[in-house]
Design a protein around this nucleic acid. Structure first.
Length: 922
RNA sequence: GCCGGUGUGGCGAAAUGGCAGACGCACAGGACUUAAAAUCCUGGGCCCGUAAAAAGGCGUGUCGGUUCGAGUCCGACCACCGGCACCA
């Protein structure tokens, strides 16, 4: 499709309407208290004189995951989610909601910095260029974003508030009694702390943001540390470079304090099961017990965590992680060398090597013994790298009889294996890890696993040898990076009178803390942040020195949906009134949203963002971090809901035409700009939605774009006179620099369009379409909604007269999907006079969504299938009002059906009125 | 290994337990055209049949079950995609 004739002048039309929408701020969303011009279509539609909260219609907040503006520009995956949300935003506006639909740029991050290193340009420069490209591309798709709320995470006016939120987190602690974050001032010092230094250290250890000197994920290639969530299979998510463990002094956020709430509150939000499961697995809650094993010939003891305390009698040895703090102490002189060598070997391994599957178990005996607290028998203490220092207590009781890994290890090193659980019939007991009956366990013999657990924990608790507990896989969030292109911390370091280096928050009045100008953005091999090179910047007049780490890319995206609520506020991250209106649950007192028919979507305002659409790649990163920050802000009274995103939908990946993931190396990348210039934005939008269900993975097919493009051409010809179109095309070809408006004026409405009364048939076609499109939009089934629009056009093209009122309603349905074409046709259709009840002075985008009349859909006669024994044998035409008896009689009268039941006994006849008849024989 | 998802024409897909394949792509035939493109009309799951039909049989990953009736519900399995992965 290169030289062929344009189906319709999408280029002129799209440009025309995009300019009009931009000039008139058609899609601006209005906050409570905003002055609203009377001429704005939103004011006209809702008869607004002011925007006090109780005069505004119900809100609908529909959010896209904002893009990282990479140098490569938009790819076809971006518009998939963006088109879906745009269609819904337009639909909700038509239903009468006050719709908030914003966009912005998640612009801090590694690629911009790496490019800066290569070209020695400031990342600000490339970031601005990339944003300009993305913005142009996004605007060319006709999305209804409110550009007055655009945000950029790298803008100091934005990250001022990122830093402000960090200060709130820093100045809070998690009160385990109330299970909430509270200001650090409410923390009572324990009475036994004497010096100010002690009290300070204790307080610092309770903050939600704290400094830790722990082994972290260090990526030498990137020259930065990474969060657990950013490490995939021992390699960096960005760049796929090896990651090693290295002890470093880093900032951490205490997300683990929120593990329980992050888990529990998943039940209150409408996310897909798979996504919730991913978060549940990441949080990784396990119920069990901590059991204390005394060390033989020592006053010390080692606690272990187990989910199977019922197998305690089968614990025949113990294993510590090689990094466990007691290891050196436990190593006996004979074993000391072996232990030291093993530890050294483990430390050398990368995470990848260490977690490699199907690896034989390794480990060494420490020489020491622990006492099994129920059998009182001594058991050897080993160290092995299959035990992780970072989970539980870093030590386990090994029950080789009923744990796969322990069994493997015990066989390798010839350690005793005991049977303490009787499996259900016929299963071998060795390595059986399921639930059964406790045996060889005097205290609990004969009890099923569940009761055995309870009884043994009760006993351990009585004796002070253990307690019921819950463990999480979730680790605290490593929050500092050794990068240039990120938010600086609002923190300084100062040496106190006792000579200790202490961190201290900068006052809010010092925000934003701007990064220093630098020539060299390179990371350093030793992990010293690039900001450390800015010696002038580091040192403050009072002698304190600045924190030189920066925040991770996730910081800016943790709260951007809040900034949209009031994006230009200079005195707060957002106005509380705006926050309550857009995010709160308080329903507005008056509801001007229309549509009370049964299929209309639930009108109840939902807490938080009503709908959030984005890719699955953020399942455990952004979506977990944002929920965490939101909960902290909720606890501190800055937001009014415990969860930020009420409903969340993941769009499926779009593959290349070869069915493979799009990638430069495969050469199967589709460039949206090319599609746009060949077929226009409406066809592009329509195709992305027509490909299949939003959530599914689906391959791109440019031929498919042509298909929907042809549909738009048919819709065009439904309205536009063919002869005038030819005249128009000749004028376009002749050129001469005629303005677009003058050219478009050559087009005439199709003469079949009349002001005659629609026929019952025509109304039926229209209302079937309204019903289908409405129901499908409520269920996010864009593909079938579009096919309903196609069915309408295919039908209507056969009409000799096309009633204006019917076509007008169709355009209201088409508008969310193909807005430019629909607006253009609307202007032509409605310019002469009013059509029916519609306000012709109101822009199509704000026209009320039509309801459908079920009475119009009723058929006079039905074609009813007749089955014999469940197989289709005939179809009969009956009046729609036919009774059961009528249907039965008519079915039995069918000659075709008769030949299949003749000579047999008819046992019964199933009649489903309006559906089918099934004749059942012996 | 565990968790989640998906299996329907040549392809993307559609189907409140009730006519499988709507809609679209690709393809074939026809109209218009000097010709092509565009447009319009027609056809089509597979098999067997037939000059062409009709009639018939088989069909939603596999095997079984529930039901008058199963793509849809239940059980077992297979394949593919995504996530987690020595988490005690």
């Amino acid at each position: 499709m290169s030289q062929s004739r344009k189906q319709y002048p999408f280029d002129l039309i799209e440009q025309k309407w995009q300019q009009a929408w931009s000039r008139q701020e058609t899609f601006r969303a209005w906050n409570p208290g905003d002055p609203i011009p009377h001429s704005h279509p939103f004011a006209r539609r809702h008869n607004l004189r002011d925007t006090q909260p109780d005069s505004l219609p119900p809100k609908y907040y529909i959010l896209d995951m904002f893009p990282y503006p990479s140098g490569a520009g938009l790819h076809v995956g971006h518009p998939e989610g963006y088109t879906a949300t745009d269609i819904l935003a337009r639909y909700r506006r038509a239903l009468g909601f006050n719709v908030l639909h914003p966009i912005g740029w998640d612009a801090f991050g590694l690629p911009a910095e790496q490019y800066a290193i290569k070209t020695r340009q400031h990342p600000r420069k490339t970031t601005e260029a990339n944003i300009a490209t993305f913005k142009r591309q996004i605007q060319s798709l006709g999305f209804t974003y409110d550009w007055s709320r655009e945000v950029d995470t790298t803008d100091p006016r934005y990250f001022k508030w990122t830093q402000w939120i960090f200060l709130q987190i820093y100045n809070s602690w998690f009160n385990p009694v109330t299970r909430r974050a509270e200001p650090i001032g409410t923390l009572k010092d324990p009475s036994d702390l004497k010096t100010e230094t002690e009290r300070r250290a204790w307080r610092d250890s309770k903050r939600l943001a704290y400094v830790s000197e722990a082994p972290v994920n260090w990526c030498p290639e990137l020259g930065t540390v990474l969060a657990n969530e950013e490490v995939i299979d021992g390699k960096s998510e960005v760049g796929d470079f090896p990651v090693i463990r290295k002890p470093m002094r880093q900032w951490m956020l205490r997300i683990t304090a929120y593990a329980e709430r992050l888990l529990d509150d998943l039940d209150s939000i409408d996310w897909s099961d798979s996504l919730k499961e991913m978060q549940r697995n990441w949080i990784g809650r396990s119920e069990g017990a901590e059991v204390v094993f005394p060390i033989a010939d020592s006053a010390k003891s080692i606690p272990v965590f187990t989910t199977r305390p019922d197998t305690l009698f089968g614990a025949t040895y113990m294993v510590l992680a090689p990094e466990h703090p007691l290891v050196d102490e436990l190593a006996t002189p004979e074993q000391r060398n072996a232990v030291r060598d093993y530890k050294a070997g483990v430390a050398r391994k990368s995470d990848l090597e260490r977690t490699e599957l199907a690896r034989d178990k390794t480990g060494v005996f420490t020489g020491s013994f622990a006492i099994n607290p129920v059998t009182q028998k001594p058991i050897p203490i080993w160290i092995a790298d299959y035990v992780l220092a970072t989970y539980g207590t870093g030590a386990i009781m090994a029950v080789p009889g009923h744990d796969t890994r322990d069994l493997e290890f015990a066989r390798m090193f010839d350690l005793p294996i005991l049977k303490v659980v009787e499996p259900p019939a016929h299963e071998p007991w060795e390595g059986f890890i399921g639930e059964g009956i406790a045996v060889n366990s005097p205290l609990i013999d004969g009890l099923p696993t569940h009761e055995a657990k309870r009884k043994i924990i009760d006993r351990l608790e009585q004796e002070g040898r253990g307690r019921r507990t819950i463990n999480y896989k979730l680790r605290d969030w490593l929050f500092s990076r050794q990068r240039y292109w990120g938010e600086p911390f609002p923190i300084v370091w100062r040496t106190d009178p006792a000579g200790n280096l202490q961190h201290e928050a900068l006052p809010e009045s010092d925000l934003p803390v701007l990064p220093p100008p630098l020539d060299d953005y390179k990371p350093t091999p030793d992990g010293r942040p690039p900001l450390a090179r800015a010696t002038d910047w580091i040192t403050l007049p009072d002698g304190s020195t600045r924190e030189t780490n920066t925040m991770p890319q996730w910081a800016g995206s943790c709260w951007y949906y809040l900034r949209y609520l009031d994006a230009r506020n200079e005195t707060a991250l957002c106005d509380p009134r705006a926050e309550r209106y857009w995010m709160g649950t308080t329903p507005p007192s008056s509801s001007t949203a229309q549509g009370d028919h049964a299929s209309s979507p639930d009108r109840k305002p939902t807490p938080g963002v009503d709908l959030y659409v984005g890719g699955t790649e953020h399942a455990v990163l952004h979506l977990l971090y944002a929920r965490f920050w939101h909960k902290v802000l909720f606890d501190l009274g800055h937001v009014s809901t415990p969860e930020p995103f009420f409903k969340l939908v993941n769009q499926g990946l779009i593959l290349g035409e070869d069915g493979q993931k799009m990638s430069k190396s495969r050469g199967n990348v589709i460039n949206p700009d090319v599609i746009l210039s060949e077929y226009g934005a409406d066809a592009f939008r329509l195709y992305e939605m027509f490909m299949g269900p939003l959530e599914m993975v689906k391959p791109w097919n440019t031929k498919g774009v042509e298909g929907v493009y042809r549909f738009l051409g048919r819709a065009w010809r439904l309205f536009i006179d063919e002869t005038s179109h030819q005249t128009f095309e000749q004028a376009v070809t002749a050129g001469g620099g005629a303005p677009a408006e003058a050219l478009l004026d050559l087009l005439r409405l199709n003469e079949a369009i009349t002001d005659t009364e629609p026929s019952p048939d025509q109304l039926k076609v229209l209302h079937a379409c309204i019903k289908k499109v409405t129901e499908d939009l409520n269920g996010l089934r864009f593909n079938t909604a579009i096919s309903a629009l196609m069915v309408f056009v295919n039908e209507a093209l056969n009409w000799k007269t096309r009633p204006r009122v019917v076509l007008a309603e169709f355009l209201v349905l088409l508008q969310p999907f193909a807005p430019h074409l629909a607006e253009e046709l609307w202007g032509r259709l409605m310019s002469r006079e009013k059509a029916g009840p519609r306000d012709t002075a109101l822009a199509l985008a704000y026209q009320p969504w039509p309801g459908f009349d079920p009475a119009l859909l009723v058929e006079d006669t039905l074609e009813i299938p007749v089955q014999v024994n469940g197989k289709l044998r005939d179809r009969i035409a009956v009046p729609a009002t036919a009774s059961r008896q009528d249907l039965e009689t008519a079915a039995l009268a069918s000659e075709k059906a008769r030949s299949f039941y003749e000579g047999k006994t008819v046992r019964k006849i199933i009649v489903v009125p309006g559906k089918l008849v099934n004749i059942v024989t012996d």
